[in-house]
């Protein structure tokens, strides 16, 4: 492919003490692409993505965003470069309302008390939260509802709305369907297809091959901390991928 990848990770290694979680892994995502990252438990999927999201620094290796080398020291760095990660169960703060969750960590402010101090602009956040929710086509009764009162699918939608409204170029989803029912999973997959049309790339970490084959363009397989396969989804089958995950060939 001649296109410039939006994300390029080169020879990434990560050691936790004596454990080699990742060894010389290459990983790239092209614009508007849905990449599935699969592998057995402990294969290094989450570690690789946490490095991309700035949670861990890599032991070795380089990361390029749109051709430019970056050095993330915190999740805030990754977020500022348009990388948003949605974790399986810790994506949202239950005790905060929907609008607050969509603006989690980047609350809007306005001047108050005659310019003496700045306060959180709740009204503006609520307005923009509505817009973000409309873009993900999710029906939530009120942006003032606390997230703990929402269903699993709605919570995922809130997390995705947050990523979109934060101008994400790429959204990483770690087992997003783990806590979802059948109908909600279907809605999530529709949402991912929709993101693609919005020119947002997606990395989808999952064990559920049927979901992966429904939405992804490419499948990357990790095993024992190494990348063992990179297939176009349309050129392979679930059986082949399953065999790669389990047997490595």
């Amino acid at each position: 492919m001649e296109k410039i990848p939006i994300i390029k990770m080169v020879n990434i290694s990560k050691n936790f003490g004596a454990v080699k979680a990742l060894q010389d892994v290459n990983f790239e995502v092209y614009p508007c692409e849905v990449v599935a990252l699969v592998g057995d438990n402990g294969a290094g999927k989450s570690t690789l993505m946490k490095i991309l999201a700035g949670v861990y620094p890599p032991s070795r290796g380089e990361i390029f965003i749109e051709g430019e080398k970056v050095n993330f020291t915190s999740p805030a760095d990754a977020i500022s470069r348009g990388i948003q990660m949605i974790y399986q169960d810790l994506a949202v703060a239950d005790n905060i309302d929907v609008a607050g969750n969509i603006f989690l960590g980047r609350e809007l402010e306005k001047k108050a008390l005659g310019g003496f101090t700045k306060i959180i602009d709740k009204k503006r956040m609520e307005e923009l939260a509505w817009e973000a929710l409309e873009r993900v086509k999710i029906n939530i009764g009120s942006v003032r509802e606390k997230v703990e009162n929402l269903s699993g699918g709605q919570r995922q939608a809130v997390a995705i709305a947050r990523a979109i409204s934060a101008k994400a170029k790429i959204i990483i989803m770690d087992e997003p369907a783990a806590a979802l029912g059948v109908k909600e999973t279907h809605e999530l997959l529709e949402l991912i297809k929709d993101l693609k049309e919005k020119k947002i790339a997606v990395v989808y970490i999952s064990h559920r091959l049927e979901n992966i084959f429904e939405v992804s363009d490419r499948v990357i397989v990790l095993k024992g901390g190494k990348r063992i396969a990179d297939r176009q989804t349309k050129d392979t089958t679930m059986e082949k991928i399953r065999q790669l995950i389990v047997e490595g060939v």
């Binding site: 005790n95 905060i96 989690l104």
Partner: peptide, 15 residues
């Protein structure tokens, strides 16, 4: 409030 409610979510969103 966010850190008290879910420190991991807080950290992940850059707080």
């Amino acid at each position: 409030y966010i850190v008290g409610g879910n420190p991991e979510a807080a950290r992940a969103c850059g707080i």
